[in-house]
Simulated scan of single mutants.
Amino acid sequence: MHKHGLIKGSFIPPRNIRELRDLMRYKTKLVSVRSSEKNRIQNSLTVSNIMISNIVSDSFGKSASTIIKYAMEHPDEIDTDYTSFLHKSMLHKANEINMSMQGTISQEQASKMNVCFNHLSYVEICISQIDEAIFLIAKDFKSQIELFATIPSITTKSATAIISEIGVDM
């Protein structure tokens, strides 16, 4: 049947769609790596009996990260008041945060967390570089992305991901 043209060949998208697909899939892997590093840091905090994640909505937000890094650098300071590290919207949780930080970070856990934070920072840079590359290719499909984004719950990012997988000639 194929010999006589009765079976349609596989869809091979144009080069720019293939490149966009490759970048989008790589970004997904980088986001997964970022999540893994955050989980490792959270595990180290749990092992150290530090439960700041139970109090703050984002353990990797500015205030929480500053507190965690301070605790890593000063493991011998047991009764530290972390109120000065808090953003003013978090001041009402100061007592709870101070109580959640009563654990002790061992040197081994601090070393591991330091590596994880460094890797996390590097992965964030990589993700932003991939986003720039995706944006450059996605400019070719601006009108199609905008059209997709008119569908409820489809964002520009998800529209770009859909186009990277199925192309624009549907």
Score class of each variant (00 low, 15 high):
His92Gln: 10
Glu146Gln: 08
Ala110Ile: 08
Leu120Thr: 07
Ser84Gly: 05
Met51Cys: 08
Arg40Asp: 00
Glu73Thr: 14
Ala64Gly: 06
Glu108Gln: 13
Met1Thr: 12
Gln129Pro: 06
Asp58Arg: 10
Ile7Asn: 02
Asn98Leu: 12
Ile67Tyr: 00
Glu124Ala: 15
Ile41Tyr: 00
Asn39Thr: 12
His2Lys: 08
Phe148Glu: 02
Lys142Asn: 09
Tyr70Ser: 08
Ala159Gln: 04
Arg34Glu: 14
Lys3Gly: 03
Ser100Val: 06
Tyr70Leu: 05
Val47Gln: 00
Tyr122Trp: 09
Gln109Phe: 05
Ser35Met: 15
Lys142His: 10
Val115Pro: 00
Gln42Glu: 08
Arg34Pro: 03
Met72Gly: 04
Gly103Thr: 04
Asn118Met: 11
Met90Cys: 09
Thr83Phe: 08
Lys142Met: 11
Ser143Asn: 11
Asp81Leu: 09
Ile52Met: 01
Met170Asn: 11
Ile125Ala: 08
Asn43Gln: 09
Ile105His: 01
Thr28Ala: 15
Lys8Pro: 01
Val47Thr: 05
Ile97Phe: 00
Ser32Val: 13
Lys8Gln: 07
Gly9Met: 12
Ser143Asp: 13
Ile68Lys: 02
Leu45Phe: 04
Ile105Tyr: 02
Leu147Pro: 01
Ser111Pro: 00
Glu165Gln: 11
Met99Pro: 02
Ala71Gln: 10
Met170Pro: 11
Lys29His: 15
Ile67Lys: 01
Ile105Trp: 01
